[in-house]
Simulated assay, not measured.
Amino acid sequence: MQKVFFISDHHFGHKNIIDFESRPFKEVDEMTTEMIAKWNSVVGENDKVFHLGDFSFLNKEKTKAIVDKLNGYKILILGNHDRGRSRSWWLDVGFNEVSEYPIIYNNFFFLSHEPMYMNKHMPFVNVHGHIHGQKYEGKNYFNVCVEHWDYTPLTFEQIRDSVVVSEEQ
């Protein structure tokens, strides 16, 4: 059975993100190796992954080498650091689908790179990245930045169940 995963803000090749976000890596190659291993530890070949932006700071060849190592059918929602490159660039490096805009998933989850304005009456949960170690308060937001989840993609069920639990509290 196919699983669906969500993750954001790997920043592959971005040396300074290690210090900016206090990532537990000595250098960028170690970060890359560990993040690929974490992805593949949960994502199977037939699974689907929504990457919510800021994937790589590397050139086309190096980015393609990383994407080729990652399991699953990969969908990229462009983040602020991805937008300097065209949709076709991202498709060429191996993403199966690329969206320049947010996506509504399963009629309930609003997938975007940056947190979107959500008031308490909106029937959606905004699954997002961009803000790294920070968190928005409220049941309408769910941050899937790698820093919050040990650099490991989360399943749809993990997010859904977390949202249901927070609504009950």
Rank of each mutant, 00 (worst) to 15 (best):
E21Q: 14
K3W: 13
F110A: 10
E97Y: 10
T155E: 03
T152A: 09
L78W: 02
E30G: 06
T152V: 13
N106E: 14
V125D: 04
F110W: 13
K74I: 00
S86M: 08
N96M: 07
Y73G: 01
F5T: 05
N71D: 04
G133T: 11
V28L: 07
D161M: 06
N96Q: 14
L76Y: 03
N16E: 11
Y101G: 04
I103D: 01
I18T: 12
D47L: 08
S99I: 06
I75Y: 04
V125K: 05
L78S: 00
M1Q: 09
I103E: 02
N59F: 11
G72V: 01
F57A: 00
A65I: 04
D9H: 13
S166I: 14
I36Y: 06
P102I: 06
V28A: 06
D82P: 01
G53V: 00
N59C: 10
H121V: 13
P102S: 06
I36S: 03
E137H: 15
G84T: 02
S88V: 10
V42G: 01
H121I: 14
F95N: 00
Q2G: 10
K26V: 10
F95L: 01
M35K: 06
N143K: 03
Y101L: 14
Q158F: 08
P153N: 02
V67R: 01
S8T: 07
N143I: 08
E100G: 03
V4R: 01
D92K: 05
K48M: 12
H148N: 08
F50K: 00
F108W: 15
T32C: 07
T155R: 03
R85W: 08
E45M: 13
V127D: 03
Q158T: 11
F55S: 01
E168F: 11
N59M: 10
K69R: 10
D9V: 11
F57L: 02
K48Y: 07
L76Q: 02
Y151Q: 12
I75Q: 00
F110M: 09
D92S: 09
F6I: 09
V144K: 00
H11D: 07
H113A: 05
K38T: 15
Y105A: 00
H128V: 05
K26P: 04
S22R: 15
S22T: 09
L58R: 07
V125P: 08
I75P: 00
H121A: 15
H128G: 02
L70K: 03
G129P: 08
H132W: 13
D19T: 14
P102Y: 08
L52A: 00
V42M: 08
S41E: 09
H10M: 07
G138V: 10
